[in-house]
Write a protein that binds this DNA or RNA. Sequence first.
DNA 1: GGCCAGGACACCA
DNA 2: TGGTGTCATGGC
Length: 226
Amino acid sequence: MSSEVPTLTLTAIYERLLEAYGPQNWWPAETRFEVMVGAILTQSTAWTNVEMAIDNLKKASILSPFGLRSISLGILAKLVYPSGYYNAKAKKLKALAGYVGERFNDDFNMMRIQDTFILRSELLEVHGIGDETADAILLYALDKPVFVIDAFTRRIFNRLGIKPDNESYVAYQKLFTGHLLQDKEIFGEYHALIVRHAKEVCNKLPKCRQCFLVNQCSTGRNNIRN
DNA sequence: GGCCAGGACACCA
DNA sequence: TGGTGTCATGGC
């Protein structure tokens, strides 16, 4: 925990967010693999763009590990074009599909029962999968109780004066997992609520100043010029 | 027309 | 090991 003792505990903040916005029911997807694909496509990209790309993959009937392995890199890039970084993301999707096939024979039940730590290590070896994407896959696609740390989380909790001494990804993650019930439902909902709160309040200057967490918000907005 | 969005990688000092 | 540039579209 931060050297400063936070006025609001992490659980209390979660309860306030849940009360304000209600359950977010993440991740919006029909299959585990769709969650994984979405986790890659949404890297530094608005979800509305990701939806268009996923819709293209569905219409082309290739939203499966086998489907992504079967299609050419060039065509795949065109299909994910709306999500931006389309050449890079096409390669990443190929890498993901290759890993799932080689390691688990496209069997997500097999994948799901693997040890979380080992699975995370393997995911990080896959091209295009970093800490955040690996944890999003573990949590939302594979039901593993891991907490996803993103830029919103760092920004919001820094303002609240809650941050680990070591501001690495893992340090932030330990901060949350160490102060919350080890429940995948809570972890999944909390991360979704943080994103919702960032979109609705933190990214809009007037609303930010009237935020229901404002009493604990030490610095105000730091990503929009006054 | 500029800024931002549910990051990760390659390269360099 | 840490900092910086690159990848890129769509909505506001």
